[in-house]
Design a protein around this nucleic acid. Structure first.
Length: 300
DNA sequence: CGCCAGGAGTGGA
DNA sequence: TCCACTCATGGC
């Protein structure tokens, strides 16, 4: 089987989602090319190269490389639905946005934008550690260097598509290995420590999900050196799909809130809490849309 | 050159 | 519990 379709839910815009994946940055774990998204991924131990386009009101998925039986296709379909958060009804969120004159425009300008996730928990944690306290452009540069050095790749049509390295590969690295890639000493140590934590089986998606509530999951994540409140919330929202994650301390979020007149200076934490209290159950989406507002979409 | 960037750990009060 | 300090480096 080389091709299949996923029916699109209401309030789903493939072009908005696709644009977000690119938005002017060089993200090495997928490629946006014209109308297409191409991504290399690993499912059930198999490496696949997948192309996604929109056609006839459906998401069309082509397997460009790799063998996929019926089981893999099922997994792949589930993966994409999860990645693009397709099984969610956004209408309650849009109803909330429309109540705020400062944000109502988002329901039109970003209509159908889904919270694009990072399905793999280790990848989401590693990526957020990479992105701590440095600008995003540089963060993507660091990620590419790491991925090109430690990750597998798939060649297709003269191009190379990378997979994010899994924990066992990074667990072998040393701080001295990463320093030449311009990782700071602490960033390198955090990453390697995280990889070892995963490699030893001390942290996993299943283990986190088995915990009773988000507070316990936050605590479990923050036991790992290098994972603070920002990273823990970010990963709960991007990887575990926690709807109520607010990455406190996020400088981009503060900028967006100031841009929209929600806060005047960046220290009004109580004001931010009050603001988010109106979005119970949709905090993560609100954060995501606020981040979206920071990127300037070119006209046309 | 200075400030900022989708923070976190540490140590002292 | 809460602040100040430190780390570290590219982007602008």
């Amino acid at each position: 089987m080389k091709k299949f379709h996923i029916s699109l839910p209401e309030d789903f815009s493939f072009s908005e989602c696709r644009w977000f994946l690119d938005r002017g940055f060089d993200d090495c774990v997928h490629r946006v090319s014209g109308e297409r998204i191409i991504k290399a991924l690993q499912l059930d131990g198999r490496e696949l190269l997948v192309e996604m386009t929109e056609g006839w009101g459906q998401l069309e998925v082509r397997i460009l490389q790799g063998q996929a039986d019926e089981k893999n296709v099922g997994l792949l379909s589930a993966y994409i639905r999860e990645w693009m958060d397709m099984d969610r009804d956004l209408s309650p969120f849009y109803t909330l946005l429309k109540k705020d004159k400062r944000l109502a425009y988002m329901t039109e300008d970003y209509k159908g934008l889904r919270l694009m996730g990072i399905v793999d928990l280790f990848e989401s944690l590693a990526w957020s550690i990479i992105g701590q306290q440095i600008n995003l452009k540089f963060a993507f540069t660091l990620k590419r260097r790491l991925v090109e050095k430690y990750g597998k790749s798939i060649s297709h049509g003269g191009e190379t598509f990378h997979l994010f390295p899994d924990a066992t590969m990074l667990a072998e690295a040393t701080v001295e290995d990463l320093r030449p890639l311009q990782f700071s000493g602490s960033k390198a140590a955090y990453l390697i420590g995280l990889a070892n934590t995963f490699a030893r089986g001390e942290l996993s998606r299943e283990a986190l999900l088995s915990l009773p509530d988000r507070e316990r999951r936050l605590q479990a994540l923050m036991k790992v050196k290098g994972i603070g409140v920002w990273t823990a919330n970010y990963c709960l929202m991007k990887s575990l799909r926690d709807p109520s994650g607010i990455p406190h301390g996020d400088t981009g979020l503060l900028t967006a809130l100031a841009n929209h007149g929600v806060i005047r200076d960046r220290k009004e934490l109580a004001k931010i809490d009050r603001f988010f209290s109106k979005y119970k159950g949709w905090e993560s989406y609100l954060v995501f849309y606020l981040w979206r507002s920071l990127a300037v979409k070119p006209v046309g």
